[in-house]
Simulated scan of single mutants.
Amino acid sequence: MTLFFTYLIVGLTIAMPVGAITIEMTKQGLKKGFMHGWAVGLGGMTVDTVLILLLYMGFASVLAIPMIQIPLWLIGALFLIFLGYDSIKNSDKDIVLSGEQVNQSFIRTYLNGLLVAVSPGNVVFWISVFGAVLSNTYDETETTSFLIVGAGILSGILLHDIGLLSIVSITRKVMSRSMIKWVSVVAGIILICFAGYFLYEFVIALSGLIS
């Protein structure tokens, strides 16, 4: 149990830095409420869970291959540009104030989170940081420690998402439509900035491969 709570704190800590998932989760939480914000977080956690399973099955070396990682930088950048542009363009649309009904499907918001999380940055993180942590607890004859560590980190991420969205839900009740609109614009700009970073990493990685 101590091992689980130790890595729950680790998961909570690594989820705190602001990234594309956090930005999209906050934006959706403000515009459409807790459940839609959480849908983005669940999409991200789905990718995290798949990566943990791949690491467990020994696919870390495959995920680290440049020919697999490089296209993901470009795909991730293009999707974030689209998401950022859409966030700015439709900043005054799809705003559902507290008490109003949401028309957008939960699944569509979940898929947004899924696609934002499919980035080489996320893959590299799990291989380098989480992969190293799990390698210390992995034993081919005893998988319990590995599973406890994985469950602890995912629980920490889940706790972070619920905490963040609870704050967003409370804040949302006192925000006007105009305020939410401008938050959406700022979120779009930040997502495009993340896309710029992805493009930079794509160019650097591609140059390194060619040279």
Rank of each mutant, 00 (worst) to 15 (best):
S145F: 05
A77L: 01
I204D: 10
K181M: 07
V18I: 14
V129R: 02
T109S: 15
V168L: 06
T141P: 01
Q101G: 01
L55I: 13
S105K: 14
I180C: 10
I192M: 15
H36L: 15
N112D: 13
R108V: 13
L114A: 10
S98H: 10
V62Y: 11
S184H: 03
I204Y: 08
T6H: 04
P17D: 03
I70E: 07
H160A: 12
L114S: 09
I189A: 05
K27S: 07
R177V: 06
S207F: 08
F59W: 14
D139H: 01
S178Y: 02
Y110N: 12
G11P: 08
S91C: 05
G121W: 08
I153T: 12
S119G: 09
C193I: 15
L165I: 06
L115D: 00
V40D: 05
G163N: 00
L97C: 09
I157T: 12
S207W: 03
D48Y: 09
G113E: 03
E140C: 00
I23E: 09
H160E: 02
L97F: 11
Y200N: 06
M25S: 15
L63W: 06
G196I: 12
H36Q: 15
I153L: 05
Y197V: 13
L63K: 08
G58M: 10
W126L: 12
V124R: 04
T6K: 13
M25N: 12
V124D: 01
A20Y: 02
R172I: 03
V168R: 02
K173G: 03
L134I: 11
K89E: 08
I204E: 11
L165G: 05
S98A: 15
W73M: 05
W38K: 07
F82K: 06
L78G: 02
V129W: 04
Q101H: 15
I162V: 15
D139E: 11
G156C: 01
T109C: 14
W182K: 10
I81R: 00
V10E: 02
S61A: 12
G76W: 01
I210M: 13
Y7G: 00
H160L: 09
A20R: 01
F59N: 05
F59D: 04
F5T: 04
M35L: 14
W182T: 03
V116N: 05
F34H: 08
N103P: 00
F125V: 08
I210A: 15
D92I: 01
I192Y: 07
T22E: 11
V185M: 07
Y138D: 00
I153Y: 06
S105Q: 13
I70A: 04
S98G: 02
